[in-house]
Design a protein around this nucleic acid. Structure first.
Length: 269
DNA sequence: ATGGTGGTCCTACCA
């Protein structure tokens, strides 16, 4: 039995619960990892998800901002939560699930800070926070490299690391999410942690691949000025199981959409 | 070069 894991920045799980249910009905992943739930834990829409067959849910949320959840058809075991930069801002949650070979797979769901508009830590503290967050994440990943062999790291990493991850590489070099200091930090995190970018493994450069299109564009599909901000990485032990993927681009055209679309990876022996 | 659109929750803040 293969294992399909989806990541999706939902931009309010309560406002878009019908889109979540639609996606689950159509794609039927084993696990759905959400970011930006913008929802306190007590108000998470558990019953609607349970009714759809997804009764195993762990959520770490807060009022108004951030928030991450892991939702599954099969049992989950809570596996901790990390805090970064001394902030309790609900940007990571972890869980364990049994893989298709019966051995556990560790899931890390992350929401990396967006970083504001100005790519300079002196002028823009949010950009400094993003870089500091990446530095702490890199230390963590380096320390735990040996434990990450059967781990999957997913989430809105808010960085498009490769040239073909943005609609125009040169035009975006000074735009937060594609500046060299960010892409180098993300590449270093990936390499130091022993992670493989599973989606790029399946869709190698220079094929363009996007998972996010700004709301500030009247015709997102025709203009297609997208970026690949949402990622699925796997540890060394899972690399041979990378089987297939799906970027659900059509979800950007659903009514009242998130600006991000679901990205799914199937692991199979 | 600029301003463009959304969500949360009442005043800006975040993306």
């Amino acid at each position: 039995m293969p294992l399909t894991v989806t990541t999706w920045n939902i931009n309010s799980v309560r406002l878009r619960i019908d889109l979540v249910l639609r996606y689950l009905a159509e794609a039927a992943p084993d696990v759905l990892c959400l970011q930006e739930t913008k929802c306190p834990d007590a108000e998470f829409p558990r019953s609607a998800l349970a009714k759809a067959g997804y009764e195993h849910i762990i959520h770490r949320g807060m009022k108004g901002y951030n928030g991450v959840a892991i939702i599954a058809r099969r049992p989950l075991r809570e596996a901790g939560r990390l805090t970064f930069c001394g902030k309790e801002d609900a940007r990571h949650i972890a869980a364990e699930i049994d893989g298709d070979d019966g051995a556990p797979v560790l899931l890390h769901n992350l929401y990396i800070p967006a970083g504001g508009d100005i790519p300079d830590r002196d002028e823009n503290p949010k950009f400094g926070h993003k870089l500091d967050f990446l530095a702490e994440l890199t230390e963590w990943s380096e320390r735990l490299r040996n434990d990450n062999s059967r781990a999957v790291l997913v989430g809105d990493l808010n960085i498009a690391p490769f040239e073909s991850d943005v609609w125009n590489h040169k035009a975006l070099l000074k735009i937060v999410s594609h500046t060299p200091v960010e892409t180098e930090a993300l590449n270093r995190l990936r390499d130091i942690g022993g992670w493989t970018d599973a989606i790029r493994h399946l869709v190698p450069q220079p094929n363009p691949l996007f998972t996010w299109w700004s709301y500030r564009s009247s015709d997102w599909s025709a203009a297609d000025k997208g970026r690949r901000l949402d990622h699925i990485w796997v540890g060394e032990g899972l690399r041979p199981l990378i089987h297939s993927h799906h970027v659900r681009r059509e979800a950007r055209g659903w009514e009242r959409p998130s600006d991000h679309v679901p990205v799914a990876l199937t692991l199979a022996g």
